[in-house]
Design a protein around this nucleic acid. Structure first.
Lengths: 251, 251
DNA sequence: AAACATAAAAGGTCTGACAAATACAACAAT
DNA sequence: ATTGTTGTATTTGTCAGACCTTTTATGTTT
């Protein structure tokens, strides 16, 4: 006859309260930028202590759902979910997985090759002049032979992001930025020699030209070839690394 | 002359400590499943109070970096980053953005259409017999006319997930699961009538057959058509909804 | 050997207080 | 009259110490 009122609550008080508030936010019962009651008031309403309220709020703050400020006009406010913050959060998660070696290099390269080719197709359809200019700017930068390896890699990332940006598709940008950024720690293992730099820049320029000409299939094929070339470089780099440290995992 | 020693530390003590521990985990200085000192011990080492330590740990727990257990053999442990947890985290973030109406329905449909077509191609190349069986199982379920709308939608999601699964590509699965799941609240607005259900199931079956036959291009084209059909249904549903509530946003 | 009771360890919570930041009002000086 | 200063109230941030709850190890009893 017991309706199992126990065991339907999972976790401690802090977690329960955090879940309650999170649900309220997600269901729109708490509007964006709305101010929550003070911590003391929350403690009284939930009949728990203030430290427990604070633990709950810290959890929500860690998930970018709320923010807190001190002072008379301070308090706790509901955050507006913004694409940038979400992208950062997703990128962090993906970077962690990649960094811990939960994915094969090979499948990452495949995923990037295919998805970026797709972005090329959409970019060829939807690119604006500003998008083309952004790509051209990075290409110009990459032609500077005095550029450090770090800066070259950074510019490479920005070029690929510019291609994604040119698709004009928000959800796609969200996912692709995470995919590209999470790959950085791995591409940073590469050392681009002059020869490879020239090849890379030439590939970028061909891709930009195809996108400018709205030639979707050529752009996609060029991107596939470009990333496939990176796979070869990565294999060499990994081979060198394994030669140095024969039994090295991915520490 | 002041070297600006202030203002280089952002946030309170709890945040600083959380950042320290997070960095230690991400850099591998704390191994997976390693046990951290007790909260009391941490408080002593950082020269802060236990409540503050707990706030820091709550933040890390919210990010799935650590877990805590009570008891003599309990304590705080470093979590192994798993794909499932990451997928859930990414899905939550994406769902929030979609739910708050930060994306157009149209661009979401486009993104899904293109990326799922891509998955179809890869699935046709890499699918195992188990993958095909999973798709067939959902199709069989969807043929049951007694299925509730809820269950039909759930099975629809599982079918699309099965296609993604068949690509065998981890990073792609991670991104696509988020894309598919975040779309659920929107597809749930649809009410499938018998006619539309039969069309949907027929499309699923054609896609499965093409993947089984390893016919990548046909499978991709079928998926594009299938999702494009959903766009039409969604437009109708949105039109109906706007007719009911002429000035309704996306609450 | 198995079942049960006991104690210790660790996270979870509570209470009450003080510290620090900040908006706003009142006031003083130019 | 405008500007700078000071005070004050409010709210989050931190602290200290205590007690509660859960979990496990240990030892006792049958």
């Amino acid at each position: 006859m017991s309706l199992q009122y126990d065991e339907i609550v999972r976790g401690g008080l802090a977690r329960q309260v955090a879940d309650l508030i999170r649900t309220a936010i997600l269901e729109g019962r708490l509007a964006v930028d709305e101010r929550l009651p003070t911590e003391e008031e929350l403690a009284r309403r939930f009949a728990i202590s203030r430290p427990t309220v604070r633990e709950a709020l810290k959890v929500l703050a860690a998930q970018n759902l709320i923010r807190s400020r001190r002072g008379p006009a301070g308090g706790t406010f509901v955050n507006r979910p913004d694409a940038d913050g979400a992208a950062r959060s997703i990128t962090d998660t993906a970077t962690l997985l990649v960094g811990m070696g939960r994915f094969d290099i090979d499948e990452i390269v495949t995923a990037r090759m295919q998805t970026e080719a797709l972005c090329c197709r959409l970019a060829a359809q939807n690119r604006s002049d500003a998008d083309l200019a952004a790509m051209a700017a990075e290409i110009a930068l990459q032609r500077d032979e005095a550029l450090s390896d770090e800066d070259f890699c950074a510019s490479d990332v920005r070029f690929h992001r510019a291609v994604v940006q040119a698709t004009g598709n928000g959800p796609l940008q969200l996912m692709m930025h995470a995919m590209i950024e999470s790959f950085i720690p791995i591409t940073n293992m590469l050392i681009y020699r002059d020869h490879e730099r020239r090849r890379t820049v030439a590939a970028h320029e061909r891709i930009r030209a195809a996108i400018a000409a709205r030639d979707a299939e050529t752009a996609a094929q060029l991107m596939r070839d470009h990333v496939e070339g990176m796979r070869a470089l990565l294999d060499q780099a990994l081979a060198r690394r394994n030669a140095d440290k024969p039994r090295g995992g991915t520490p």
